[in-house]
Design a binder for these strands. Structure first.
Lengths: 214, 214
DNA sequence: TTGTGATTCCAACAATCGATGGAACAATGA
DNA sequence: TCATTGTTCCATCGATTGTTGGAATCACAA
């Protein structure tokens, strides 16, 4: 028998899915404590009790959201891996940034939620199970930093974490950073990609990128 | 006449300062909505109304906390700048990481609070004034990426942001990342510094660092 | 000592939070 | 047709939130 999350992912028009999708955004913007059940229900256009009927407690809904975005992210990473397969390392990194940044900007709640889980505590200390390590090691292998999934050193894990975090930071901090730089969204996205290449290509691929700033 | 914040910073033993210092930690750990006035008061060991007597509304206290950590950070950056003055670029970066990472780990609420302000929204959309850009341009100049404070391109600003964020990420995400890598705090701090050097020395200073991982 | 202002705590307030019981409604098949 | 099951909403609950009034206490000058 399928879990509520599986049912929601299978039928995107169902009420379960509609609630889940709005919950992703609200939880992503305000965090677990900042988001209220009434905010989510109002966003969907339903009564709160309808939400409880489908997803139970607030923390259960939150957990479903976390699992949901993790599933999305894993799928997307697999898609990227297939695209860049066989390319030289520098090109692999460059293309990965290009695709992933576009994707994350279209689903910024993913970056928001991941950063929240990394950095924020929840009042009742529960539910801190991860699902992250696998993704990290997958990326390490895909980037040619490790032979297989098992033999990934902590040094390499840290570098991949830094890379992923850098992407999420720029996506999630868009409002803050853009109002600081006073530029359009398109220009900002271009700048994010250029910055990521500037920083990570030399260290990860030994390549100095050609930027317009130099 | 001095502001409440100035009074608190002048006398670290005063009740105002004691409340402020605990508020930094609680707000940093749980965010604005996650932290409650009762949590902070209990941490100080006083009644909530005493807190209101000294700092007024919750949002006022939060604002004082933000200004407070910004002042600390600015002071520390100035201190670092004096130390690294005159050194070659690669050495400047390396020493800056070493000092700043040690400092931030001792005051992790600074990293926590900065990240919260970058990435989280607050329910009542008020009080979002910054005080960050100055710090960014100061670092850019100190790192030799800009001639003076005025002529800092957006490209350079973004790179400095990436650098600062990377530091804050590793400090603020310690619990999460360390339980993933299963290492001690000392080993983690060492790994953070090594990773930062590995990533930023090649792109910022054109230098490939000698790491034990290669 | 007395008086005055600053400080601290107790008690309570209104508003909002997460959560639920139960009535109303809809869909389906017997 | 009716009974059953699934779904949605209204009304409300108790707990927790931010906040405040007022009494008690303290520090200290007169």
């Amino acid at each position: 028998m399928p879990t509520p999350l599986e049912k929601a992912r299978k039928d995107p028009d169902s009420m379960k899915a509609r609630i889940l999708n709005k919950a992703r955004i609200i939880f992503g913007q305000y965090g677990f404590h900042g988001a209220t059940t009434r905010m989510i229900a109002e966003e969907v256009g339903i009564d709160i009790s309808t939400m409880y009927y489908h997803w139970g407690e607030k923390s259960d809904l939150y957990e479903a959201v976390v699992l949901d975005i993790n599933e999305d992210l894993k799928t997307k990473l697999l898609e990227v891996e297939n695209i860049i397969h066989g390319m030289p390392l520098a090109k692999r990194i460059e293309i990965s940034f290009d695709i992933m940044i576009d994707y994350l900007f279209e689903h910024s709640e993913i970056s928001n939620l991941i950063l929240f889980r990394y950095f924020a505590k929840t009042r009742d200390e529960s539910a801190l199970d991860f699902h992250v390590p696998e993704v990290i090691t997958d990326i390490a292998r895909s980037m040619g930093m490790a032979k297989d999934r098992k033999n990934v050193s902590n040094e390499v894990r840290m570098r991949v974490l830094a890379l992923m975090n850098a992407m999420h930071n720029f996506v999630s901090g868009e409002d803050f950073f853009r109002s600081m730089l006073k530029i359009t969204k398109e220009e900002y996205i271009r700048l994010v990609k250029e910055t990521l290449n500037y920083i990570f290509l030399p260290s990860f691929a030994g390549v100095r990128p050609n930027t317009e700033a130099d």
